[in-house]
């Protein structure tokens, strides 16, 4: 399932958060939106999800115009920066939520929901935490539950806002690898936002580098690292030592 954003502009008050941004992400591709804070990367992600609406421009999901449809109808998986787990629900109920709120005609039976949630718990390797509450989990565990919850509805695209931002370095590296493998198993289009150059270059298939509401360059990690399109990209990636590229 592809994502295509065309000529998107977004203004908050007097601040122009996105200035005519266009970007295409193919099925099976893992794209990183990389940029300093305030560059518009989270705004772009929220516009793809339908959580914010663009002032002009279009959003296509799988070549269908989704510009006017709400977040509810877009069938995207979204992982929030601070996870946004439902605090009064157990891990199990958090993951089951997206299935339970479906209209009766498309809602799976209680047994199917159970099976699906247990599968996802197995996938994130947290079966034994099914009946705990979010406040009883570590940061890394919450992150994985948030991901399982997003995947439960079998989304067309997966969007992650600073997915590793709040985690310590060791957990972050483990989860990066895990996310990469998970993405390869799912065959969907995934986009994640990050301000960490190394993270973007090591995990993503392609990287879009944003600055001040513009996309400065889009390309594979190798391309943007070795052939920066302009002075900003060159400067922004100057002190980065991505292991993946070093080894080549």
């Amino acid at each position: 399932m592809s994502i295509e954003v065309q000529h998107v502009r977004k203004i908050f008050g007097t601040h122009e958060a996105l200035k005519d941004v266009s970007l295409r992400i193919e099925t099976g591709e893992l794209m990183a939106l990389l940029g300093p804070s305030g560059s518009g990367k989270t705004t772009l992600l929220r516009i793809i999800a339908g959580l914010d609406l663009a002032d002009s421009g279009t959003v296509h999901l799988h070549d269908e115009d989704a510009t006017q449809s709400t977040a509810r109808d877009r069938q995207v998986g979204f992982v929030f920066q601070h996870y946004a787990l439902f605090r009064h629900m157990t891990v199990f109920e958090n993951i089951a939520f997206g299935l339970r709120v479906r209209p009766k005609s498309t809602r799976p039976t209680e047994r199917d929901i159970h099976v699906r949630v247990l599968d996802l718990l197995k996938l994130i390797q947290l079966e034994w935490l099914a009946y705990r509450y979010p406040s009883q989990l570590s940061g890394g565990q919450r992150q994985r539950v948030a991901l399982a919850r997003a995947l439960a509805v079998e989304p067309k695209v997966l969007l992650l806002d600073e997915p590793f931002g709040a985690l310590d370095a060791k957990v972050r590296r483990e989860l990066r690898q895990w996310l990469r493998r998970l993405h390869d198993d799912l065959h969907i289009a995934s986009v994640f936002v990050t301000h960490d150059q190394e993270e973007a270059l090591e995990v993503a298939d392609r990287v879009a580098i944003l600055s001040d509401g513009n996309i400065e360059q889009v390309g594979t990690p190798d391309e943007v690292y070795r052939h920066p399109a302009n002075a900003f990209v060159k400067e922004f990636l100057r002190d980065v030592n991505p292991r993946r590229l070093m080894a080549e």
């Binding site: 339908g50 959580l51 977040a71 509810r72 995207v76 979204f78 787990l85 439902f86």
Partner: peptide, 9 residues
């Protein structure tokens, strides 16, 4: 917002 993205009305 999380509930909305998951399809809740």
């Amino acid at each position: 917002e999380a509930a909305m993205v998951l399809g809740a009305n």
